[in-house]
Design a protein around this nucleic acid. Structure first.
Lengths: 188, 188
DNA sequence: GTCTATAATGTGATAGAC
DNA sequence: GTCTATCACATTATAGAC
């Protein structure tokens, strides 16, 4: 098999498993089995578990940047873009209910482990934070744009944690509805 | 040493370590070292890691029930009691910043591990949920008491996750202030 | 690039002496 | 109740054949 393609398969499998089972709880053997490789061959592509995590986070960062640009194309207004973010807890509802928020759970886990890559995981949060701040600035709230961005981020994390714990879809809908009302008070 | 006292010491140490490092990342050796016991002697008191987790959750449940009764004694009005809950993210600010919410992070971790004790961990959330629902009912909002309780719980989890990730105390203060304003619209 | 074999370590857990 | 010694197993990681 092509080396680059194999590497890509490994990162994809690791990304999914880290999300579904957690980083620490996922072993090399799990990833190797998911890709269909022997454990030995694994080290030809990645020389440590941290190296895989590094690649996974880099992939997620790139994917998030791409998604945010897409949201910008699909929604011309800043309030429409913020609403698109808020609705991610509905769009990804089933995944969040089963596995939590991929950004929040990774950050929480790496922080507890005292992992060196904690800062890079936080960058995933920062991407959303900065993007939301830009939208609130464009909406005419430059003075409190970061505060509002953090508030929307906190909403998403609170909903994700409880959706994961209680598996209650109606709760998610109600919270999104609540957020829509709140957002409308900040529209131009 | 007295057997019951040793057992209590083990549960205390395990409780703290599970919170600070996570359940999976804490080994028998870690707990034994914290208590000052040999690994071998450990199994006289608890015959499996799950048994320790069981005891830790039971202790936390009892502690939470005790705390909620105390809050009821200290705050005569339902709005005062809800506010007391909201302010927990300030009271326990430093711990939450370093280790996250003990309830939220345990629930998230056990859910990802597919651990059998997941349901008992969720009970910790349910204690707060039911208690908050009672307060909102007493406040005259019986029809949407559970929805409001979940909203307040989501607030606490969102703030905890982001406080843990960004270590931003000012953010916590602002969110509490925002919550106080929101609460005031539901007061009698 | 892929494999098997294996090292080195840490883990949960047990046996048996004191 | 506490200890040492040890087992069985999974883990990350390496060496070397193909």
């Amino acid at each position: 098999m092509n080396g680059a393609a194999t590497r890509e398969h490994i990162v994809e499998a690791a990304d999914r498993l880290f999300y579904q089972r957690g980083y620490e709880h996922t072993s090399f053997a799990d990833i190797a089995a998911a890709v269909g490789l022997s454990r030995g061959n694994f080290y030809y592509h990645f020389k440590s578990k941290d190296a895989i995590l590094d690649a996974v986070i880099a992939t997620r960062l790139a994917g998030t940047r791409h998604m945010l640009r897409q949201w910008e194309n699909e929604h011309p207004t800043p309030s429409g873009r913020i609403l698109r973010f808020v609705e991610i807890v509905l769009t990804n509802g089933p995944d969040i209910q089963q596995y939590g928020c991929p950004v929040g759970t990774l950050n929480t886990e790496l922080a507890k482990l005292g992992h060196t890559m904690r800062g890079q995981a936080r960058e995933l949060f920062t991407l959303f934070r900065d993007w939301l701040r830009e939208q609130f600035t464009e909406l005419g709230h430059a003075d409190q744009a970061d505060e509002l961005a953090m508030h929307v981020l906190a909403f998403s994390q609170g909903v994700a944690v409880l959706s994961h714990a209680f598996a209650d879809e109606e709760f998610v809908r109600r919270e999104v509805s609540r957020m829509r009302d709140w957002l409308s008070t900040y529209e131009k």
